[in-house]
Design a protein around this nucleic acid. Sequence first.
DNA 1: GAGTATTTGATACAAAGTATCATTAACCAG
DNA 2: CTGGTTAATGATACTTTGTATCAAATACTC
Lengths: 159, 159
Amino acid sequence: MAKTHKAIHTPGLEGALDRLEHLCRARGQRLTRQRRAVLSSLLSAGRALSAYELLERLRPEDGKSTPASVYRSLDFLMTLGVVHRLESTRSFIACEHPETPHWVQFLICRRCGQVVEAEDERIAAATESLGQRLGFALDQRVVELTGVCEGCRGSAARH
Amino acid sequence: MAKTHKAIHTPGLEGALDRLEHLCRARGQRLTRQRRAVLSSLLSAGRALSAYELLERLRPEDGKSTPASVYRSLDFLMTLGVVHRLESTRSFIACEHPETPHWVQFLICRRCGQVVEAEDERIAAATESLGQRLGFALDQRVVELTGVCEGCRGSAARH
DNA sequence: GAGTATTTGATACAAAGTATCATTAACCAG
DNA sequence: CTGGTTAATGATACTTTGTATCAAATACTC
């Protein structure tokens, strides 16, 4: 059977949860039901979600989630590097390649909401070098580039 | 008399307000008391302010400012390019060099809150090229680098 | 399987940002 | 410099986003 239909089983979900377990174990942190649920939910959403959108998706499964608990889980997953926050849209997204510690950039389509995570050497080098030149010891880099993706420019010519 | 005391008259404030007037005139937009007040206040603050901090500073002078009106003025000033929003701290700052249309980067000291506005060619080129490579027509670039500035690293050794 | 420290649940609240519509004031014309 | 027009503001209420606190629950170690 050809893979013409959208996969029902989110690809990589299992792998990501395994990775989460290993990360927790390695760092002596607890892997709780909620943390697993938050990551799964973000992964299966396949896009960035606001904390409250995430909350709505968790509620059916786990009626006792609250804003505070969702934010706590998100903070935790961010320290592990398996979730990122998009500052310019106040939303959260599962990391696409959490294997390596990394500085990433995001490209966000303002039409369809698609988010692409990139790991560009030139940008990494240029930002680091700017920091040094200005005397900053950088520990966080937000690079979020918004525009219109190829697909959206092609299809909806002018709208 | 030596200039040992902090200037009471914010340097460049007049110039900035003149520039604002010219920009409005050139674009057929109205220059209102509130818009002037918001820009002055940001300029004399000399640092990034949240919309509500700004509101508090406006109140003594103009008791009828509201959150909505402040946000409206900020949005307006941003379209003119004389004010920028810092996404990662949810705050606003007067632009340091609004002469040229520009893509800027910000370096933010997490210790003292200092914000430096930069206009780095390499970063501009690298982000543009990344956008092209991934098929994005970029129209907004958020580059916010957080760390500890030279002064703060020097003084408070470890705290 | 029990002990313990960490997380969570529940509640309440703080901060950030927006919608609507009647009123006001900036700018232009004369 | 006076009035007319249109854009901006004021007032009000509300939505969204994020946090504080503390008792109850649960993940992990032994």
